[in-house]
Nucleic acid binder design. Structure first.
Lengths: 113, 113
DNA sequence: CAGTATCCGGGTAGATACTG
DNA sequence: CAGTATCTACCCGGATACTG
């Protein structure tokens, strides 16, 4: 590993990362923005059935505060707001890929139960 | 990516992974088992201050059910139970490393606020 | 030693209504 | 269009007590 990790510090660092990414809707928002895609608030509402306006706004705020996504407001009427991944946020993709690869390597007998 | 991911399926797959790893104590348990370390129930109790017996047992059961760790019971009195990573569980390490690397690449201006 | 059983409180998400 | 505000319900985790 890159740093001097102890079991406690490594777990705590990963927990910090998880806190940034978990939450009922964050991942699905992120995957709708990966690859440089730009989406308006209303686009995301349509892309994510079942999400409430409160939750969409809240999760977007948190992702923005953590620097994973960027929010751009156009001073027009009616309002127009765009969301996109930050450069750093985009670089999350390979790490999530590693997790997906790991899941695919799961022994077959476990995939059912 | 390896499979035919849509934003929805990729998010859902990652969520499944997160559900296996999140939970108040799972990561710290895992990091105390990574590297082939073997721990008894009472070892983990000592290594993880603040955890209750209920939570320790519960998180261990879930990790075992997901195939990430293995549980070995010795039929002796007093009881002796050992926990270790499964082969697949051990292979989670590089994926978590990728996440840690990602966190380290976070722009400096964000690390404070 | 290695667990279960039970009760309880706080936080997160859902539903609904309202607004610049 | 892009949000806030408020109320409520549920579930996770903590505390405590008990057991093969």
């Amino acid at each position: 590993m890159a740093k001097n990790y102890t079991p406690v510090s490594a777990a705590s660092d990963v927990e910090t990362i998880f806190k940034m990414l978990e939450g009922r809707w964050k991942l699905i928002i992120l995957f709708h923005l990966f690859g440089g895609k730009v989406q308006r608030y209303s686009d995301l509402e349509k892309l994510i059935p079942g999400i409430s306006q409160k939750m969409l706004a809240q999760q977007l705020r948190q992702l923005e505060a953590d620097g994973i996504i960027e929010r751009k407001v156009y001073p027009v009427v009616p309002p127009k707001v765009e969301y996109r991944m930050s450069e750093w946020g985009q670089s999350l993709c390979p790490a999530l890929d590693a997790l997906l690869k790991w899941a695919e390597a799961r022994p077959a007998e476990l995939k059912v139960g």
